[in-house]
């Protein structure tokens, strides 16, 4: 295979990773940006989404398309509900103290993992993709579903952007993000905004998982990587910048693949170099690529 096709493949694969990552990270960006809490359980919301998608797929073993569409609706709603409960029952009582929240969300992480282990089991379980077609390029074959994932994630991100910039809910959320006290003074129910934000953030992680589970399988420990990568993407993009999050996701998704392809680095070495490069970007641009300079 020539260099061109290799590069194309690396870009396609990177784009799939980036698409899913962007969705997950946008969810985290909302809770992180608006509520100012470090939600360690965010990856577990992703995991719960994937696990629930598997359960939904078991109801309709012969109709994967129906199961997929249903999962796209049910999973984010259920996960958002769980998140809202967690917010009202726990985080709110902690007054969103950053440090207490970390401990509480680590606790939630354990609880969700045990729930998945007990009810779903320790195995990685596949979910059938809603449709099967393979795009045959001149040099290699590629999964049609993966192309769909890129498209679907793009549409969903657009919807989130519209929600935040063009609706009243978005306006209220942005107001709360900028100044909580003033928002309160203007009669905004901050408690409700927080619960909603936490729910939407978790729901976005869940929907990303529903998209990815036909390519990746559900597993009760799958939440770790999305959590770390989402954090990196959110900060690298710049807190509160949707555009930054998207571009950072692309960067994270593509960087090590491109390094590996273009410079023939061994893959693990490419990952090390990519990690250090991103860290250095932040060192010299602490506010992130598109964040506003605060200090």
């Amino acid at each position: 295979m020539g260099f061109g096709p290799l590069l194309l493949l690396a870009i396609l694969e990177g784009a799939v990773t980036a698409a899913v990552l962007a969705l997950t990270a946008v969810g985290l960006s909302l809770t992180f940006g608006i509520m100012r809490v470090v939600n360690v359980a965010h990856g577990e919301f992703f995991m719960l989404g994937a696990v629930l998608a598997w359960f939904v797929s078991q109801w309709f073993p012969d109709a994967p398309l129906l199961a997929f569409l249903l999962a796209m609706v049910v999973c984010p709603l259920v996960v958002a509900g769980v998140a809202v409960l967690a917010d009202v029952l726990i985080l709110k009582r902690l007054h969103y103290e950053p440090e207490a929240t970390i401990v509480a969300t680590i606790g939630l992480l354990y609880i969700f993992q045990q729930a998945a282990l007990s009810f779903f089991g320790p195995n990685a379980r596949p979910v059938a993709p809603p449709f099967n077609f393979r795009v045959q390029l001149p040099w290699f074959g590629y999964s049609g579903y993966k192309l769909f994932v890129i498209l679907a994630a793009g549409v969903l991100l657009l919807l989130v952007w519209l929600l935040i910039t063009r609706t009243k809910i978005g306006l209220v959320m942005r107001a709360t993000q900028i100044d909580r006290t003033t928002a309160k003074a203007f009669g905004i129910n901050v408690d409700r905004v927080y619960a909603m934000t936490f729910g939407i953030g978790a729901g976005l992680a869940a929907i990303a998982a529903v998209l990815v589970v036909p390519i990746q399988q559900a597993h009760y420990l799958m939440g770790g990587d999305p959590l770390l990568l989402s954090f990196i993407v959110v900060i690298l993009g710049g807190l509160g910048s949707l555009r930054g999050t998207l571009i950072a996701a692309l960067l994270i998704g593509l960087l090590d693949g491109l390094l590996s392809t273009a410079f023939f680095f061994p893959p693990t070495f490419a990952k090390i170099v990519a990690t250090l490069l991103v860290a250095l970007v932040l060192v010299f641009r602490p506010e992130g690529l598109f964040g506003r300079r605060t200090a």
Partner: peptide, 22 residues
């Protein structure tokens, strides 16, 4: 890393540690 602070510091240290792990 101390060129950064707050959450950026958290992420930068996380990434250095990940590079060490790898």
């Amino acid at each position: 890393a101390l060129r950064t602070r707050g959450v950026s510091f958290m992420i930068v240290t996380l990434m250095f540690a990940q590079a060490g792990y790898l």
